[in-house]
Write a protein that binds this DNA or RNA. Structure first.
Lengths: 137, 137
DNA sequence: CTAGTTGCAAAGAGTTTGCATGGCG
DNA sequence: CGCCATGCAAACTCTTTGCAACTAG
């Protein structure tokens, strides 16, 4: 029950997934994908992009975020709850910059929250909001 | 430079702010406000609501969130970075429920992140995503 | 062939903006 | 009265959906 049986492999899907994998360390928006393929000979229609992203999310191949303040969703390659390369997101509310921080110590929170609050944090999806060092000066 | 000088006090603004304050322990959406006042004799226009919410955010009287998965923004009474009644948000990605958890221990994270990562977390605005106890069974 | 996939265009949700009218001070 | 605020409708952005044409297997 991993792979759906009745699925076709199309050029569009191949290209979209390849682009997502190439950018696995970043978040990308649906629009970035649409724009990326809009200039070539056979542009990929946006409904195709949205539908495929939706499909990949449901199959747990990519993950969907919403960064506060941005009106559009972000996508990133990787399973939900994927703990392989733990990293946290910090978004500065002042300058808007998004920091990707790898931190072992913070995994302690995860345990605490799981034991005390009975909630399993998906750290790769959680975004911390606040003010970064530069902006506090 | 605290209070803007040329401002009028109108019934609409009074009503909107009152409603936000009444619900200070919850998040409310623009639409909830619009709906709330849509049935009365003089409904409040949505542009008024959006414009006023925007204004209150800029003046740091209310705070704006985006809960992942929801397409609309949420608002809550209280300053940005307001640490008076610390509480954290946990959102279950499975059942969609949003938990409001008060937790002293977790303030330790805040210190750690500030010291080690030079980032001041606004805990009242941060939402943790994951799976709640019920849904893990 | 035939069912899944594409792409266009239209529909939707949420939010913003332009502009004439209304009301606070 | 002057200036800000309101409310309507139209514009906009992001996303979803309906449907006919297309194509992988």
């Amino acid at each position: 029950m991993e792979q759906k049986s009745n699925e076709y492999k199309t050029k569009q899907r191949e290209a979209i997934l390849e682009y997502i994998v190439e950018n696995k360390e970043k978040h990308i928006t649906a629009d970035e994908i649409i724009t990326r393929f809009s200039k070539q000979d056979n542009p990929i229609g946006k409904s195709t992009v949205y539908r495929y992203l939706d499909k990949l999310c449901k199959e747990n191949i990519i993950r969907r975020f919403t960064i506060d303040g941005s009106s559009s969703a972000c996508y990133q390659y990787g399973k939900d709850g994927d703990s392989c390369h733990e990293h946290y997101h910090f978004k500065c509310e002042k300058c808007g910059e998004l920091f990707h921080v790898g931190c072992q110590l913070m995994n302690g929170i995860k345990e605490h929250v799981l034991e005390e609050h009975d909630f399993m944090i998906d750290s790769s999806k959680t975004v911390f909001y606040g003010i970064c060092g530069k902006c506090r000066n």
